[in-house]
Design a protein around this nucleic acid. Sequence first.
RNA 1: GGUUCCUUGGUCAAGCGGUUAAGACGUCGCCCUCUCACGGCGAAAACAGCGGUUCGAUUCCGCUAGGAACUGCCA
Length: 483
Amino acid sequence: MSKVRTRFAPSPTGRMHVGNLRTALYAYLVAKHEGGDFILRIEDTDQERLVEGAVDIIYRTLAATGLIHDEGPDKDKGVGPYVQSERQAQGIYLEYAKQLVEKGEAYYCFCDEERLAECKQVIGDKEISIYDKHCLSLSKEEVEANLAAGKPYVIRQNNPRTGTTTFVDELYGDITVDNAELDDMILIKSDGYPTYNFANVVDDHLMGITHVVRGNEYISSSPKYNRLYEAFGWEVPKYIHCPLITNEEHQKLSKRSGHSSYEDLIDQGFLTEAVVNFVALLGWSPENDNEIFSLEELVKEFDYHRISKSPAVFDITKLKWMNGEYMKAMDFDKFYEMALPYLKEYIKSDVDLKKIAKMVQTRIEIFPDIKDHVDFFDAVPEYDSAMYTHKKMKTNEESSLAVLKELLPVLEAQDDYSNDALYALLSGFAAEHEYKNGYVLWPVRTAVSGKQMTPGGATELMEILGKEESIKRIKAAIEKLSN
RNA sequence: GGUUCCUUGGUCAAGCGGUUAAGACGUCGCCCUCUCACGGCGAAAACAGCGGUUCGAUUCCGCUAGGAACUGCCA
């Protein structure tokens, strides 16, 4: 058994789509589970779709997610270059295409747009075109003459019209199609660049890729790739086609969903580890029912035979839950560091942000959730006094006013505003008056926060607010309730 | 339209001929509790339909329906 080699071969066209991220993850895991190599190859053969900076995004994303490649443009281990435009410049693809022409497996095509338009037909609302092998009949002399005249050309694969072609997918098994379905796809474009279809096969072979991990959308063109391998006499790699990731409407995840890329998710306050974990489980499940996996654990557990065949909906709600799990499990210092920018954005007053971070850590799923938890620290928001009425606490506006009035001098006399001291004070006060704790703590918490729910209890909040601010807020509440 | 693939609760999914059809998210209820959250316990919720094969089908086969992908000088 030779060493497993997989590759991730993205096009530098923008952000990292979550489908691509998962493909990269699976390719990485297939290799690493077997102690193999993971290779990065940049497929920039479409010069028109290139986006500046997109290659950097690819590098950054792989580094951030921990999908470290063993070989790539920046780490040549002898089968480079790892960027297709550079390989093109070396003439690699044209050379191999010519070999195919020699064998009669491919041919030059000089058809222009006008000629090609004749092959098009509209069925329903779709336009389809099947090339009619028009240029296959050109004699060698005619081809030479056209070439010499500098006529633009493409090189097409010459597929048979009869018989069938079968390829094997590790997950889907044997897939057979009629050769009549196989269009004579273009191998070399008129600008001299290879198409994905051709460059992929040539490079995967030249780079010694043993397992081709890619999206499901390539499954229908795989028979044509197989014919290429056979035409060259090359060994066909193992294919692993991953199921699609869809939106809630069961359609291809698009930019419009707002969370279609890894970078979108990070912008929205998700943690890299959670995104990787979540995406791993979209189309794959472990033998046990564990759901929280670090990348290292995934490497150990990942058996690609357990990848499922049906498409999976990207459920942002479950991702949020998972993110929350990572938030809670995170080392506090690290959490504090990451939460700080958010805390500072929503809290301008001089309070102990570390304490607030601690309160908030078990209550948020993504960082932006912090806002709703802390927006009362700077100032009590406008609120309805009806909030003082709480059935379970047996409180209402009148009882709250009475309690707060009674409590005010007690709180003014208190100097130790630590949570423990305050709690002892208030529960002592309640016991003394034969009140239930909630009967006094509910109005205090409401007075001090103006909110239905807060990241901590009344006394915890007062510890952070401090004596002066707490008293001020209680007084304001008495004022409000008195009107 | 053609080709190929897919089909277990709302979602992710286990299952690979005999099960009370796991587990998770979400939802709902209860407990804990100075609110909320965390945590604990529990509930509702699924084999697309129809035919075969079989002593026995969620599991195998076929058909139907639904969905998706491909059908580019994009990948």
